[in-house]
Design a protein around this nucleic acid. Structure first.
Length: 439
RNA sequence: GGAAAGAUGCCGGAGUGGUCGAACGGGACGGUCUCGAAAACCGUUGUACGGGCAACUGUACCGAGGGUUCGAAUCCCUCUCUUUCCGCCA
């Protein structure tokens, strides 16, 4: 959530930034500023009246003590008058506050200056200022490619066929038990999941992250805190009876661990990692995009989250990107890093890098991680602050990234490493999985 | 699911109508002492919003929401949550 004070200070700059994110309800900004103005006036009036009431109440006490009953009664009548005025202002304030809140939560986070901007619409060709030699994908910028694509024989199988061939994943069984998009992992397939989770967690812990195992079901305040509500309500499974949401990512419970906390400056950065299953409705997805493990309703993911000093968040973002990149490299998968343009970034993000791995048999790039800096957008909602050297409370910056989401990694591992004898596992996984070759 | 008790500041814990943003203790922070540390002693220690260049000042907040009252942490109502006991159960 953006801060009203910031809007008030520089509305024009904010509108320009919002435009970068393809945000169209720009007039919300002016509406909010106007409303805020009205609220401050109204508040002043209420507070002044309240001040009078408070001091007159003290007077009544004094008068009663000294036995001046008639005087006291007179002042009491005045207070009753004042309260009548107050009682008409208060509901108005309440209503305006709510209206302001409603408008405020509809504003997405401002994109960072580093977000690629498309400048020449209408020419049919996309260009980007400040990013000369990069390949362009619908405004996103591939900033790096790594690893080597395998050359597979013509009869190479997509992962869903491999999963069947080696009896690793049963998609039909999942449909029977739950519905489509709920794969059942089996035998070595199940163990591979466990191996990946373990490996990813160990890798994160070695980099100084503290492991958490959080609840998978969260309340409304928590879902609101990280920005899932109200923006992505339709993406989450909802437990109606208790008004709980199934988490779409570990980011939600983990970032909320520090909700309403004021940290000491020296406690920063807070580095957390967690494995959780993730639940997503993925409404509206269909066709070959959702084939196999490409898009499922329940999947496993290991997440990293950091709460950091505002001045350091972009350095930390680079550090996290590096961290994830190295992890993917150890798996020997061809990958690329994409800097997202304004239109593709999430509601809450200021800058996002996506990691995609190349799924050779499908000839497709699959997103396996998304590393973002949210600056103060989430922490303003959650009121996660720290005391700076002047003793002032400031909002910390929050960041997170997947390291990594499992299904698409599995898809690539299976497809890219298939041989006539079976599927070769990368060295780092062999010990965790207990096998070198899935056959 | 049944019964009882409770919810106060970073923590423990007092406070049953005004002088309470809240005693007292602990913690944390700063200082004195010390070669250094401990101990001891002194001091500081809530948040948000508004006004003011500032010193400062106003309002709100004692689980949440309503009510009574000139005045509520304190009285009343509703809700939520926690703890303990019983039952059930992994």
């Amino acid at each position: 959530m953006l801060q009203v004070q910031a809007l008030r200070q520089n509305p024009q700059a904010i509108k320009e930034r919002l435009a970068v994110k393809n945000f169209t309800e720009i007039n919300l900004v002016d509406e909010i500023i106007l409303l805020d103005e009205e609220i401050r006036h109204l508040k002043k009036r209420i507070e002044d009246a309240q001040m009078q009431i408070n001091s007159k109440s003290d007077q009544i006490q004094q008068l009663n003590k000294s036995g001046q009953k008639d005087e006291a009664d007179k002042i009491r009548d005045q207070v009753i008058m004042l309260k009548t005025l107050l009682n008409s202002d208060k509901p108005e304030l309440e209503q305006k506050n709510k209206l302001l809140e409603d408008k405020l939560v509809r504003l997405p986070n401002l994109p960072s200056e580093k977000v690629p901007v498309i400048v020449t619409p209408g020419t049919g060709e996309l260009t980007i200022t400040g990013y000369p030699p990069y390949v362009l994908i619908s405004g996103n910028v591939v900033i790096k490619e790594g690893g080597t694509k395998p050359s597979l024989p013509a009869n190479a199988l997509p992962h869903w066929d491999l999963a069947k061939k080696y009896d690793l994943i049963d998609f039909e069984l999942g449909t029977k038990i739950s519905g489509s998009g709920f794969p059942v992992y089996k035998g070595k397939g199940a163990k591979l999941q466990r191996a990946l989770i373990q490996y990813f967690l160990d890798y994160n812990i070695a980099a100084g992250y503290t492991e958490y195992l959080p609840p998978l079901i969260v309340n409304e305040a928590t879902a609101f805190g990280t920005g899932q509500l109200p923006d992505k309500e339709g993406q989450m499974y909802f437990v109606n009876e208790d008004k709980f949401y199934l988490i779409p990512t570990a980011e939600v419970p983990v970032t909320n661990i520090y909700r309403d906390e004021i940290l000491k400056e020296k406690e920063l950065p807070v580095k957390m990692t967690a494995y959780t299953p993730c639940f997503r409705k993925e409404a509206g997805s269909y066709g070959k995009d959702v084939r196999g493990l490409n898009r499922v309703h329940q999947f496993d993911k290991v997440e990293i989250v950091q709460l950091v000093h505002p001045e350091k968040s972009y350095d930390v973002l680079e550090e996290m990107v590096n961290h994830v990149e190295k992890l993917i490299q150890t798996l020997n998968l061809p990958y690329r890093i994409v800097k997202l343009c304004g239109g593709d970034m999430s509601f809450a993000s200021a800058l996002t890098y996506d990691f995609e791995v190349y799924s050779a048999a499908q000839d497709k790039w699959l997103e396996v991680s998304s590393v973002s800096n949210f600056e103060t957008f989430q922490t303003n909602r959650m009121k996660i602050r720290f005391k700076d050297s002047n003793g002032k409370s400031q909002l910390v910056h929050s960041l997170n990234g997947s390291s990594l989401a499992l299904p698409r990694i599995v898809a690539c591992l299976l497809e890219n490493n298939q041989t006539p004898d079976g599927i070769n596992l990368p060295t780092v996984l062999q010990q965790y999985a207990g096998v070198k070759l899935i056959s």
